[in-house]
Design a protein around this nucleic acid. Structure first.
Lengths: 244, 244
DNA sequence: CGAAAGTTTTGGACTGACCAAATTGGGGAG
DNA sequence: CTCCCCAATTTGGTCAGTCCAAAACTTTCG
């Protein structure tokens, strides 16, 4: 105890904003520095209010803020779990807003088009600079994709995986994150209508075309194959979004 | 707006999650539907607690959540301002986490490389499909850039603007947002070191090369000019980030 | 040794109160 | 009549204390 852990009266140099912000920052530091371990639960609120000599209100607010930032995962009645931030954390925090904008097809289409844009760049780069390992992975993903043609659920997964491999090629952690963002955000709409082995076979053919173009180091061909592939997909998914 | 919804009396039967979530959702709806107008202040907390017949604690929590999602802009002592969500809102909410990752390690570099990736695609597209207006805008931005060579502050701004024009070409609202995200996130480091008219002149030359390549509808040349340009910039900015 | 019952802890929510800053309303000076 | 300044009121931020039901932790018992 010894409540005197922090004399708050003696120091007033900066314009004191929110009291919780100070706590947020302190906890944040401790999470980043590792003083609070990843995947472990946060100390109890009553504990925290002692450590920071603040009221529960403030502590609570701080916790909520941290949770909003994704540094804590706060399930309703449970202890908040500490999450060290990564690019995935960042993407997660936007999830709720993106979700809102996806309800209007305008937003969904924008997002989809951005994906096309990104993947166009990815396949071009793959065509010009994919390593042997990259190509091996692509081949593997492609094989899995072919094997799943008859099972639409599995096909969906292997489809995602194939595209996912493309995102790993730049070796930039942002891209895999982006991929999972695209898939999780668009997934609900995507899943709802999907199906025939016929359709799957066509998709697979597209994938193969992309792969082949990459193998032949032909960026333009790879890009074009990718674009037509995605456009076909969109033509059957786009309409599932709200009209206006 | 006939959805009067239930007044939530005393019930314990349902697995009610967070009480504030219900309010969050209601307010969110009202913001989206326009019942609460963009850029106007939210009603007072005491008012809200009457409307939703909840305690101030809960109302407060709801407001905090909304603010965290970017639907409200809450300055410390002022009334929260209603913000209808857009892609910019989304990017804003990630700001704090991104900021964390920028301080450290290769986070900054990853971000920068992603920018290079994006702009490569942008200039390619510009080279193949820029409209007369796009080109006119580029020309204008370029002229402004040249005129600012002697004034490093102004040069920085016109530099950003020039790149910004590229992000408008796809006519996808995500891209301008992305541009402002890149600039605001990287700005602090970028600003801290820049300077000589000498350096500016070189940058301008790069911009001109990009512009010329676009004019000549040469995607490869445009891309290459862009890459060398950004790499030069990075070589003088990158080191300003924390080592490891 | 493990499962059930019991006890303590903890997060969610509410009330009432206080303070300082923001907003508002009303004069009084120009 | 307008504009600015100062009180009166509102409002956001914070605190302390209380209640409750669900988790988490103990202990007991089969």
């Amino acid at each position: 105890m010894t409540k005197a852990s922090r004399p708050k009266a003696t120091e007033n140099t900066a314009p004191d904003g929110r009291a919780s912000d100070a706590i947020v920052e302190r906890i944040q530091e401790q999470i980043l520095s590792g003083a609070l371990l990843h995947n472990t639960p946060l100390p109890s609120e009553r504990d925290l209010m002692e450590r920071f000599s603040a009221s529960r209100t403030v502590v609570r607010e701080a916790v909520a803020t941290l949770a909003g930032r994704g540094l804590l995962e706060a399930k309703p009645r449970y202890r908040p779990i500490i999450r060290k931030p990564g690019f995935d954390t960042a993407l997660n925090t936007v999830g709720s807003i993106v979700q809102l904008m996806l309800q209007h097809q305008q937003g969904a289409e924008s997002l989809f088009l951005s994906r096309v844009f990104v993947e166009r760049g990815l396949v071009r780069d793959a065509a010009t600079s994919a390593t042997r390992e990259n190509i091996a992975e692509l081949k593997e993903a492609l094989a899995a994709n072919e094997a799943a043609i008859m099972d639409s659920d599995a096909f969906y997964d292997t489809d995602m995986d194939f595209h996912g491999v493309l995102y790993t090629i730049p070796e930039n952690p942002i891209f895999p994150t982006l991929h999972s963002a695209y898939t999780t955000w668009l997934a609900p709409h995507w899943r709802r209508m999907k199906g025939s082995p016929e359709f799957n076979r066509k998709s697979y053919a597209s994938h193969l075309a992309i792969y082949t173009a990459i193998l032949e180091r032909d960026p333009d061909a790879a890009e074009e194959a990718l674009v037509t592939h995605l456009n076909v997909s969109w033509s059957s998914v786009g309409p599932t979004f709200a009209p206006e």
